[in-house]
Design a protein around this nucleic acid. Structure first.
Length: 602
DNA sequence: GCCGTTTTCGGCCCGACTGTTTTCAGTCG
């Protein structure tokens, strides 16, 4: 884990412990906010602390959400490897209490009461209190609450994690398609983190405007794959929907992973408030808080029904007030003096300072796939099928990059087999028209940073994607040296899935990204966003740092089967979340420019 | 604990739903 991730975890835990203890909730919010900002902060905080000496505190407080106290704790962690305050809080709160925060419906207030008044210290204690009925003696705890709590515990015990984007998206699209045909439905869309393209999704938000709320609610709650109705109100319903366990070539989901169901929320929206609701429910939370503050500064208040004059009283929409803007997101942005901000940017990471809508990479910009496998290693398609599919998708170039010899399990090619394969690819390129088929390889970056083929063989390949596949638990310093060596290799075009992480499965390497991006720029190497939804590697905040460092980005689907081409949109969303403009993404270049760039390495 | 073109103190987004209550606290997003 990187220092930033460790610090983010520490501040997140401090926030939770403060909440459980019932101390100042704004202090908890401040730590929670700092946690989220540090998690996504592009520069290694340890570098800042080590590099700025006595100025460290000043440098750190320049980070939004980091004040003097948090800065001191960052310095303490970077120099001493611990945060004393966290140790003290841990000593106060029983260790088994913290995980109970994950149980839906169990918040800090209830947990505090369970602990202090009910003597509950962990999950076993909680179950005992429920069985004995003692729990009913606590304030605001009745039969129904206990029943819900029992169901929530059962869910939590299945090991709930956030669902990968590529699993949530098809579920959301299926629900949208189903509800679209319900009686009275006028508009329907999904919002939330799914619309923002986050790599994992906590729950799916569906928005509907309709002349018949009861009908759409009934269809929604009555669907075959609904396993639980959590709530059913006039304007909101929540259910849990069963999910499939197919995780592509990484096999079925393991027991206790990703859980068997995901929460889906349906919101019924008045047609006149469509834009305000879509904006509100798209989030993120941090973006919404910031934009609301901006509204208040201008004497307005923003809620899911629209932008209103702020008369100091709550719920303006219920008092017949006419909104300043509400019909479209555009109307609201205009009223607030903002350009349209693409959903992927709405994370309160500088997007509110934009003067115009940035041109970010789009799926339609991508004209080349530079990372694809055939049956020669672990792919399902032969060269011709791969080429025809790429052509069908409107690409001008497809690179055939089968695995190298060390990836034994993936059927990696020996030098002899690779030489034959190159001939086969060149032959296919000669007779298949309308697309360039380039011989390449996804070459293993071995644990010491050397490549899996010698230079003489690499020189015969038009495209070299160098990727780490093994030794993915190296320490950050070793991983940095390893990847730097590959970047510096004169034959390498692209660093494939640079960290090797698998979402919800494997953390992967934690190299110093800033160092890698600087080297990639200097050596004219593109860093890959591997678009497969189990990878999305580089991840969004890496891309942001890479874009700012001025280094080239490749978005590749790492194609093993026809359907993998469909992952492109997830890679593009990740690129957009990293503020990636099309010209910095080599897959958007026209054939002449791309091929000239590839040849410049030969 | 953070933050500041009306503030260095006094704020900190806003509403729906539920279950427990006789008016609202807790949780969630």
């Amino acid at each position: 884990m990187s220092v930033n991730a460790e610090l983010a975890a520490a501040f997140g835990e401090i926030a939770k412990l403060i909440e459980i203890l019932g101390q100042d909730k704004f202090r908890a919010i401040a730590h929670d906010k700092a946690s989220r900002i540090i998690e996504a902060y592009p520069t290694d905080l340890k570098t800042i602390v080590a590099g700025s000496g006595a100025d460290a505190r000043k440098r750190l407080t320049e980070i939004e959400g980091v004040g003097p106290k948090i800065a001191d704790k960052i310095i303490e962690y970077c120099t001493k490897g611990r945060v004393q305050e966290l140790d003290e809080l841990r000593a106060e709160v029983p260790a088994g209490l913290l995980p109970l925060m994950q149980i839906p419906g169990l918040g800090p207030k209830t947990l505090h009461a369970l602990w202090k008044e009910g003597g509950v210290k962990d999950l076993a204690g909680l179950k005992k209190a429920i069985e004995s009925g003692r729990i009913l003696e606590l304030p605001r705890m009745g039969e129904k609450s206990v029943q819900k709590l029992k169901e929530s515990i059962a869910l939590a015990e299945q090991g709930e994690t956030r669902l990968p984007l590529g699993m949530a998206m098809p579920i959301a699209e299926a629900i949208v398609a189903k509800l679209r045909s319900a009686k009275g439905v006028e508009r329907i869309a999904f919002a939330g983190s799914l619309r923002r393209g986050k790599e994992t999704i906590g729950d799916i938000d569906i928005l509907v405007s309709t002349s018949d709320p009861d009908a759409v609610g009934a269809v929604f709650r009555g669907a075959d794959d609904v396993v639980q109705v959590i709530s059913a109100g006039e304007t909101r319903s929540s259910v849990r929907v069963r999910i499939g366990g197919d995780a592509g070539r990484w096999g079925a989901l393991q027991e206790g992973q990703a859980g068997p169901s995901i929460q889906v929320d349906l919101k019924i929206i008045p047609e006149a408030s469509w834009g305000a609701a879509l904006y509100y429910f798209t989030g993120s939370k941090d973006h919404n808080v910031a934009v609301r503050q901006r509204s208040l500064d201008r004497g307005w208040t923003l809620n899911e029904y629209g932008l209103f004059e702020d008369d100091g009283k709550a719920e303006p929409h219920k008092r017949g007030l006419k909104p300043i803007a509400s019909r479209t997101e555009d109307d609201i942005f205009k009223a607030l003096g903002l350009p349209f901000i693409p959903p992927e940017l709405r994370e309160n990471r500088g997007e509110l300072s934009l003067k115009s809508t940035p041109r970010l990479v789009e799926v339609g910009d991508v004209r080349a796939e530079l990372h694809a496998h055939t049956t020669e290693s672990d792919g399902e398609l032969i060269i011709e099928e791969l080429a025809r599919e790429a052509k069908h998708r409107g690409f001008h170039t497809i690179a055939v990059t089968d695995h190298s010899k060390s990836s034994v399990i993936a059927g990696g090619l020996t030098p002899e087999r690779l030489r034959e394969h190159i001939k086969a690819v060149r032959a296919a390129d000669a007779w298949i028209e309308g697309i360039s088929i380039l011989p390449g390889s996804e070459v293993d970056i071995l644990s010491d940073g050397s490549l899996d083929y010698d230079d003489e063989l690499l020189a015969q390949l038009d495209v070299v994607v160098a990727s780490p596949h093994a030794a993915l638990s190296q320490d950050p310093a070793t991983a940095t040296r390893r990847l730097l060596r590959a970047i510096e290799h004169p034959m390498v075009h692209i660093i494939g899935h640079p960290t090797g992480r698998l979402i919800n499965r494997r953390a992967g390497l934690a190299p110093d990204m800033a160092e890698l991006f600087a080297a990639a720029k200097a050596h004219n190497v593109a860093m890959e966003i591997n678009a497969h939804w189990m990878r999305l590697d580089l991840r969004d905040h890496h891309v942001r740092a890479a874009v700012e460092a001025g280094c080239l980005i490749a978005i590749d689907c790492d194609v093993h089967a026809v359907d993998d081409f469909d992952c492109l949109r997830y890679g593009v969303m990740t690129g957009r979340r990293g503020w990636l403009p099309p010209e910095q993404c080599i897959n958007t270049w026209d054939k002449k420019k791309l091929h000239a760039w590839l040849r410049s390495k030969r």
